Amino acid sequence: MSGAEALDGFLAWMRDERRASSNTLVAYRHDLAGFLGFLTRHLGAEPDLAALASVTHTDLRAWLASEATRLAAAARRRPRSSPDGNNRSRAREASALRAFFRYLARRHGVENAAPGLLAAPRPKPRLPRPLTVAQALELPAGIAGEATNRFAALRDEALFTLLYGAGLRIGEALALDCGMVPATTDTPLRVRGKGGRTRLVPLLPAVLAVLHRLLALHPAAGAGGPLFCGVRGARLDPGVAQRTLRTYRRLAGLPEHATPHALRHSFATHLMSGGADLRAIQELLGHASLSTTQLYTLADETRLMKVWETTHPRASRRAAVPPIKDVPDAG
C-alpha cells in the first residue's frame, strides 16, 4: 500500500468514525500530502507502509524545518501575518502527523514511535473577541433592514438573532429544518453539533418569536424543508451569511472581527458577564472540553477586574490605609 492510499484511508476513517469536520479533513489532507511529498523528495521514491515504518525522528524534524522555512517565506509576502499563526500551523501539522501514525498502527500494524516524540511550538490560545451587548442586539434588525425583500429580511433577522440568542455555530443553524423549531419555549431546540453530538438548547421568547415569524412566511414550512433557505429554496450557504454580515459591518462601522462566529462568542461572554455558571455555558455551547469554555474567562476582562476589586483585601478603593503607629524604641 502506498502512502497516498494510506492517507485516503485515514481521511475516510476520520470522516466516518471520528466524525471530523470538513475543515479538519481539508487541513489534514493538505498537511499530510505535504509530508508525503517531502518524504518522496527526501527518500527518492514515493513512500509505502514500510518506508513510513522506518521514518526517523531526524526525518520528521527535517520536515518541520522545511515547513518553518516555507511558512516564514509566506509570512514575508504577507506583512500582516503573525508569528503565532505560523506556530499554529506547525502545531497542527504535528498533530495531523501523530494522528496519521496512530491510525497506521491500529489499522496496518505500522509501529513507529518517532511521531509521538515530535515536539512542535505551542501557540497561544486565541481569545474570543465578542461584540458589545449593544452591537449584538442591534445587528439582526440592522441586517434585515438591508434585505431586498420581506422574506430575506425575516430570514436574516431570524438567523442572526438565533446565533446570538442561542450561541449556535453558523453550520448548526443552517442545518436546521422547519419542523425542528419548537412550538413553545417549554421545548428546547435540538441541535446537532461537532462530532455528531446532539445538545438541547433552550430558546428565549424573543428568539422563538422571530423564528415563528419566519415560519409564517416560509414557503416550505409545512414540507419540512430547510429553515434558512436561499432564493431558489435550497439550504442557505454559510458563505452567503458571512458575506451578508461582512457587507453590513462595513456599513455600520463594526469591527472586522464581527462575524457569525463572533455572535456565538458574544452569547457566551455576555452570559459569563451576567454570572452564568461555566459548566452551564459549556453545555449550551456543546464544548466537549471545559478548557475550551474557560477561554471566555480570559476574554471577560471586565468581569475579572470586578472580581479582583471586590475580593482582594488590598484591591478595595474604598478601604482606608491605616496610619503607621509609632513603635517605641527597644533600646
Results as ranks from 00 to 15, higher is better:
8 D>K: 11
12 A>C: 08
20 A>I: 04
21 S>C: 08
25 L>T: 13
25 L>C: 07
30 H>F: 14
31 D>K: 00
33 A>P: 02
39 L>W: 04
44 G>F: 12
45 A>Y: 04
48 D>M: 14
54 S>M: 13
56 T>S: 10
61 R>Y: 00
62 A>P: 11
70 R>Q: 12
71 L>G: 12
73 A>T: 11
74 A>R: 04
75 A>D: 09
75 A>G: 09
78 R>W: 06
79 P>I: 08
86 N>Q: 15
87 N>W: 00
90 R>H: 04
93 E>K: 07
104 L>I: 03
111 E>Y: 04
112 N>M: 00
116 G>L: 05
117 L>A: 15
119 A>R: 08
121 P>S: 09
122 R>H: 11
123 P>Y: 04
133 V>K: 11
146 E>K: 10
150 R>C: 00
159 L>N: 06
160 F>R: 05
161 T>K: 13
165 G>T: 06
167 G>F: 05
169 R>V: 07
173 A>F: 10
179 G>Y: 11
183 A>H: 04
184 T>E: 02
185 T>K: 01
189 L>A: 00
193 G>D: 07
197 R>H: 15
200 L>K: 01
200 L>G: 10
205 P>W: 02
211 L>M: 10
212 H>N: 13
212 H>D: 13
213 R>Y: 15
215 L>K: 03
215 L>Y: 03
217 L>D: 15
225 G>S: 09
230 G>N: 14
230 G>F: 06
231 V>R: 12
238 P>V: 01
239 G>S: 09
240 V>G: 08
240 V>W: 08
241 A>I: 03
244 T>H: 10
246 R>Q: 15
247 T>S: 10
248 Y>N: 03
250 R>C: 10
251 L>A: 11
251 L>T: 11
256 E>T: 06
256 E>Q: 13
262 A>G: 02
263 L>G: 13
264 R>W: 06
267 F>Q: 00
269 T>Q: 04
273 S>W: 00
277 D>E: 07
280 A>P: 00
283 E>Q: 10
286 G>T: 00
287 H>Y: 01
290 L>G: 01
290 L>F: 04
292 T>M: 05
292 T>N: 02
294 Q>N: 07
296 Y>D: 07
311 T>N: 12
313 P>Q: 02
314 R>Q: 08
316 S>Q: 08
317 R>F: 04
324 I>N: 12
325 K>V: 09
329 D>R: 05
331 G>Q: 13
